[in-house]
Amino acid sequence: MTSRIDRGTMRKVAGVLIALAAWQSFAMSSGSRLIPGIEDIAIEFAGLALNGELADHTLTSLSQGLLGLFIAFSIASVSGYAAARNWAVDAAIHPLVSLAYPVPKLALYPLVILLLGLGWESRTAQVALECFFPLFVHAHAGAKAVAPRMEWLARNVDASPWQAARDVIVPTAMPYMLTGLRIAIPIMLIVTTVTEFIGDSQGLGYLIARSASYFDTASAFAVIVVLGALGLLGDRLVVLARDRLVFWEKGASL
């Protein structure tokens, strides 16, 4: 059995090594400076990390992105809860959300710029706009998922609406909300990156665009690695939070 596990780990590592080797040989055989080898990317990464630029831009991107995510999460929780608990609110909001869900909200970015200017406000708003939809859908589904029997129980013990929300509805909705968050975090990174491409500014997206304008693909890939690491970290944090907060629901929903 231990040999089986070892073989699995070996295959996983081998998979990464094969992918890296394929990239490296592609970079070397192309002979172009535009396709950087792994060592070029590592050197640029070290350079950007040492002169502090990477940290600065990461901080900028993250603060904008997380603020947008927080705004979206707050609005989505409240409206999702309201829609799930009240049929009239549901009838008013839900069709509009369903209709707009498959639409790339990025198309509204020019309008958002007109409203809020080219600064961080428009980027944050755009992140919030795009992240709202998956968060709303999951908050709504979560609040809906409360078993009627649980609600009867809450009423049976004369729980106040506040107590019922805290002890029955929020715990039930929590796994859904966290799944929504897992979907929203990558979206936040996408939108942050795109909006930072546009106009001269700050942030990791800007760093990529700047590197690209100097035909410095090695730096661009160094930043891409950082973005990937942020995405991975965010996802792991949500999973960790889920294991802590909703420990009774093992391995539920992706």
Binding site: V16, S32, L34, I35, P186, L189, I190, T192, T193, V194, F197, L204, G205, I208, A209, S211, A212, F215, T217, A220, F221, V223, I224, L227, G228, A229, L230, G231, L232, G234, D235
Partner: peptide, 18 residues
């Protein structure tokens, strides 16, 4: 697991150079 979290749009400027 490592490539999935990369926002793919970040690749675009580099790909566009080539």
């Amino acid at each position: 697991a490592f490539t999935h979290p990369i926002p793919k749009i970040a690749l675009f400027p580099a790909v566009a150079i080539v």
